[in-house]
């Protein structure tokens, strides 16, 4: 069972992601409300899969992705963000995310996105 961390400044979004991804056999090891908290949780819990919001207080998602990737290049990161322009998605992928899901999203869309992320990880 892969370990999952969810980083989003909205409690509602964290809950929604946790509910939806429980069905994917992921074990939730941390819920973070900002980038700094996500980085600390990552260091202690060492999740293999992360969902990451971009607009967060304290430390934004892009900086957090960069720092997490420096700690563990194998981690799989799905960005879940309202910043839905192409330039932002490309920047997130360049920094080390493997997937990008626009907000607002349905649970089915999230399931598909995380399924693709895990499939790539199994094949990679």
């Amino acid at each position: 069972m892969k370990k999952l961390m969810i980083a989003d400044d909205s409690n509602i979004v964290r809950s929604k992601i946790a509910r939806a991804l429980g069905q994917h056999g992921l074990h939730i090891v941390g819920l973070a409300a900002n980038g700094r908290e996500a980085l600390e949780l990552f260091k202690s819990a060492r999740p293999e899969v992360v969902t990451m919001d971009l607009t967060m207080p304290e430390m934004d998602g892009i900086e957090c992705i960069r720092k997490i990737r420096a700690l563990d290049p194998r981690v799989r990161i799905l960005v879940v963000s309202a910043l839905s322009d192409k330039a932002t998605a490309i920047q997130a992928l360049k920094e080390g995310a493997q997937g990008f899901l626009d907000k607002p999203f349905t649970e089915a869309e999230l399931s598909d996105a995380i399924g693709e992320l895990l499939e790539d990880s199994n094949h990679g």
């Binding site: 909205s10 509602i12 607009t55 309202a82 910043l83 322009d85 932002t88």
Partner: peptide, 21 residues
């Protein structure tokens, strides 16, 4: 309050498609 902030954030964030990064 959380969902109110999230709706505002999502609407403003999605506007980057129109206004750019």
């Amino acid at each position: 309050a959380d969902i109110t902030g999230e709706i505002a954030n999502t609407i403003a964030g999605n506007a980057r498609r129109e206004f750019g990064s």
